[in-house]
Amino acid sequence: MDDFFKLDGITVQFGGLVAVHRFSLHLEEGERVGLIGPNGAGKTTVFNIVSGFLAPGSGKVYWKGNDITGRPVHEITRLGIARTFQNIRLFPDMTVLENVMVSFHHKLRSHFWQAMFGLPSYRREESLLKSEAMTYLEELGLSHLSAERAGSLPYGQQRRLEIARALAIRPGLLLLDEPVAGMNPSESLETAQLILDLQRKYPLTVFLIEHDMKFVMQLCERIKVLDYGHTIAEGTPAEIQQDPLVLKAYLGGACVC
């Protein structure tokens, strides 16, 4: 039971469509694992299961040995599983700093009435949160933008802010849903470097979805390939590149079934 994170026989159906079929996954602490597959393969569905946005039809999710299947999203986040979104979901009308500070809210000790009456204990906590949020912004090179509206940042920085916000949860497991979508090669190289740097500084396990094969092959130690909800391959990047089923799923080919 000393598993770090485990998905066990997850199946999700939307009406008659089987989005994910008997998906199993085992993550070791500190790993970088990629999930790839053609469009509509069920990758984001897997992420939604892990982060609690969807409850699986059958199967179990284990986090550090505990069954967390079907728990509400905010509880799962508090246990230490943070995510980013495929299409950026910042709080656009709040400042960059406030965006990060929202992530600290769940561990706030003061009660609402302490905040309402502006008691010194609350104010101390607030200034502590502020400086902590600034360290995360510095980490991602966004500290000079802390007072900007998040919605007015350029695309690349919005992606970074999303990572900063997820990192502020202090997650054990970080889920990145297409972290380099829409980035040019040099930007995605930078992001890969950033993820490696963050892993050196924080005890972080990374599970990511990405279509940029170069990025995935460079960064991930292990890759799982989904197609039509079925796991068709699993292994190191080198193994995946040679796998006939993967080649078929991506490039098409004669049916060998």
Binding site: V73, A82, F85, V102, A115
Partner: peptide, 23 residues
């Protein structure tokens, strides 16, 4: 306060707010 930020986060994007641990 932090509570106000959580409320605004819910207004801006409830899905993201939940993913950041706000109930």
């Amino acid at each position: 306060s932090s509570y106000g930020r959580a409320l605004k986060a819910i207004r801006e994007d409830e899905t993201a707010a939940r993913a950041m641990g706000v109930d």
